[in-house]
Design a protein around this nucleic acid. Structure first.
Lengths: 130, 130
DNA sequence: CAGAATCCTTATGGATACTG
DNA sequence: CAGTATCCATAAGGATTCTG
């Protein structure tokens, strides 16, 4: 059984990670960067289906500021900027893929449960016991 | 090196989990439920600092609909409703605590990197080469 | 006690236009 | 090419009131 810390989970590393990769695009960026040595801005943009230019910038900047992604600017014209996972980013990717293992195994059951919850025979009342 | 699937991560179990526990309260609810056999609505409400009644309801309902939390109503007056993790919820908790292990080890470095990014000596230009 | 309903604020992200 | 800067739509969540 898990024990509640004195701070009542106010300091919670898990929450921190989730806040970092729980947004709409960070995980995808990490996944794609994890599948190549390095990628240019527009390569990422093409890969990550549906992402806007703005959100790709915002996402990369915040990953960079956490030391998860390294940004390298080449003094060329037209400019070339390459992104790659840092070791720390690589570590996060692996930790997250581990979670993905659990997810992969249980996603079907969860999805099924969710579907059944959506189509109840009748609306639930306080009298439904189990 | 990670391989990009044909669907380009469109079907991504990790994303599904993150969408489930990446919101503001789900993780905390799971953590507290993981630290007790079962908890009543207002016990959870007291434990989870800052949560509103509405959000506790919403959070519990969606966890329940995914089969992660079981809700038991006792036909008493005043009503008593108890929540507990299902086996599936327990599994998710463990998977997430594993991620927490990584987080715990790297949170300090990440926070530090973030601080330094916030206080740069001068604003960055395209000429700053690493 | 354990909520449901309503209203309202804020946070997140998209669209578009412009630039070194 | 790789961004910035604005503006705008939607979604997430908070506050309040009411009820079986």
């Amino acid at each position: 059984m898990l024990t509640v810390p004195e701070d009542g989970f106010a300091f919670c590393p898990v929450r921190d990670v989730l806040d970092r990769v729980g947004d709409k695009w960070s995980l995808l960026a990490i996944l794609y960067l994890g599948s190549a040595e390095q990628l240019r801005f527009n390569e990422l943009r093409k890969n990550i289906a549906g992402i806007s230019q703005r959100m790709l910038t915002v996402t990369l900047r915040s990953l960079e500021s956490d030391g998860l992604v390294a940004r390298t600017v080449y003094a060329e014209v037209p400019p070339r900027v390459e992104y790659q996972l840092t070791d720390r980013g690589q570590g996060l990717l692996e930790a997250v893929l581990h979670l993905g293992q659990w997810a992969k195994e249980h996603a079907p059951a969860i999805l099924q449960a969710r579907q059944q919850a959506l189509a109840p025979t009748k609306p639930r009342s306080v009298n439904d016991l189990g």
